[in-house]
Design a protein around this nucleic acid. Structure first.
Lengths: 335, 335
DNA sequence: TTGTAGGCGTTATCAA
DNA sequence: TTGATAACGCCTACAA
């Protein structure tokens, strides 16, 4: 109720607003006692300098925007944790936004940020759209952008990714060595860079083992669970693959569900490996074989790159490409 | 780069700043053509009014702070999704903060918000500390607070919870009816209100079935996985319960792991039911029996209450207590 | 329908 | 060490 600000505090203490301000900004130009006095009274009023006013002056928001396709997903949740950890150390806070993989949402949020709402952006892109110039606007305003996991190749920015190609190659090769000859590749959006890279590993592993690539085995799924169930049911019934390599955790779960329904036995009739950051993959029935990305570390790295960019504001925009390593865990589902 | 603001735009268009401002605020007091002209030029410059300046004037941030103990957790992730969904409809954005169940972090963030950083707070509390008056400071500034799932009872605020007592009672009763006589109750923090409520359901179900309550069977776990593994190993080896009722998902997973290690068979030797929002609970080995809270809906409800509070600013602070229903799913782990 | 002007709360600069 | 003042960018009475 009783409005409080630096001015009122100043009057109350018989000081000037500048002195009050200094008390809050670690300025050395202030008498220790005065400072104490100010802070103690401020505490009584539970007063803190208004951020919007400070930001308006300083053009610093101490806020980092994080944009992800989904939140209820182990990979992203862990990555966000990593980002938050680093942000916190720098006294930054996280403005979180979820795109649901919808391009328009991504564009609208990025544009919204384009006005001093955040000091930077860490994002995993929706993967849609062709023209991503809206991201370059940010550059003009010195708002660093860091991509993680999912990247736009037409935008120059720091990136944090994993060795997707290698992992995919290794996973596919494992399936081949285990005897699979008809391996389906599950993907959500073929056009997205990450889907392409992972698929290339799959394709090349097939080639190495002289198993012909079959376009029919590339299953383009959707974001809708029910649709996926239908698609996968059809695949398992009609195409009858003997192996599944899923580029997305969600699709592996869907596969499990469909197998349960159809009575397809994993790994006997169908071996499954999936990209997944699920901690409890070993507890599934059967234990899911995974390519596990270092989600938390990726978040940490992305945030670190962001803060580096922030500090070098005048120099060039950072274009560091950071690649972390995923791990392949072969469990029951692919034995 | 080339700085841009309402003034510069005004000069460029030979208009006044007020006219420019009006173009962005759906004001009716503006010529349609003028507006078009302004917006089109603005778009060229990818200009949007600076939020910090607007906020400074309006005292509205269009930002909603969300405070949760953890992010990488299905319950909270889904709840955040629900909150975000509603927030978005109101043109609000989410400032996310994670407390790691550490009281000091909670206090420090809440205090940080106490200065016009957000228009309101939706939180699931850390559950520590005795004095939560720092939350009342917010009330004075008309920053509505909504608790969800985890609540401080000494603070008046709108709350969204689930029928924890009933669910716990039902789950315990199920275990009893299935023949369990030595049911361990797993909890992370006994003092937290939610832990108490859930425990009461457990206690009362025991009483109803004339099974004596045994303090030794209340297992107070930690936030550290390794510690929990140790604790649970000891419990399974020494106390040898025949049922587990876990108030927290995480502890159920830990139980599974320990059972795998020790070769304890679920559900033959040990039946397990847990609070959990895990979508793939049926895919676990064995399928986990859960009390599933409507996480997404809770988020939606919490956000809805928040916006109601926001609109009734002058009237009384809302103290609505909303209770949603959880569902008990008995699966293989408790059959 | 458009313009003028003052102020939102803070801080940096300069002067005392 | 402290104080006065201008400025950050925007919005809204009020005036024209």
């Amino acid at each position: 109720m009783d409005k409080i600000n630096i001015k009122i505090l100043a009057k109350e203490l018989n000081l000037s607003t500048s002195t009050i301000s200094r008390a809050f900004n670690g300025s050395s130009d202030i008498n220790k006692d005065t400072k104490e006095r100010i802070l103690s009274i401020a505490r009584e009023h539970s007063f803190l300098p208004n951020h919007y006013a400070s930001n308006l002056r300083d053009k610093k928001t101490k806020t980092l925007a994080v944009i992800v396709p989904e939140i209820a997903n182990d990979f992203f949740a862990q990555a966000i944790n990593g980002i938050e950890e680093v942000a916190r150390k720098h006294g930054f806070y996280i403005l979180l936004y979820r795109t649901d993989d919808i391009f328009e949402k991504e564009v609208s949020f990025v544009n919204y940020l384009n006005n001093g709402k955040a000091d930077g952006i860490i994002m995993s892109v929706s993967g849609e759209g062709n023209d991503h110039q809206y991201l370059n606007n940010l550059r003009q305003k010195n708002i660093p952008v860091v991509f993680f996991d999912r990247v736009y190749e037409d935008i120059e920015a720091a990136t944090v990714t994993t060795n997707d190609y290698d992992s995919s190659f290794a996973a596919t090769e494992h399936l081949l060595k285990s005897g699979c000859r008809k391996i389906a590749y599950l993907v959500v959006n073929k056009s997205i860079s990450i889907g392409k890279t992972r698929m290339q590993g799959y394709v090349d592993a097939l080639a190495k083992h002289k198993v012909p690539f079959n376009d029919e085995l590339v299953i383009d799924c959707s974001n809708d669970e029910k649709v996926n169930t239908k698609i996968l049911t059809k695949v398992l019934q009609e195409i009858k693959p003997d192996g599944i390599f899923s580029s997305v955790e969600r699709l592996a779960f869907a596969t499990y569900h469909v197998c349960n329904t159809l009575g397809v036995s994993i790994p006997n009739q169908l071996k499954v490996i999936s990209f997944s950051s699920l901690n409890i993959a070993p507890l599934l029935s059967p234990a899911l074989s995974t390519i596990t990305q270092p989600a938390f570390e990726m978040g940490v790295k992305a945030a670190t790159l962001f803060f580096e960019a922030l500090e070098n504001k005048d120099t060039n925009f950072p274009k560091r490409q950071h690649v972390l390593k995923s791990k392949l865990f072969i469990r029951k589902s692919a034995e």
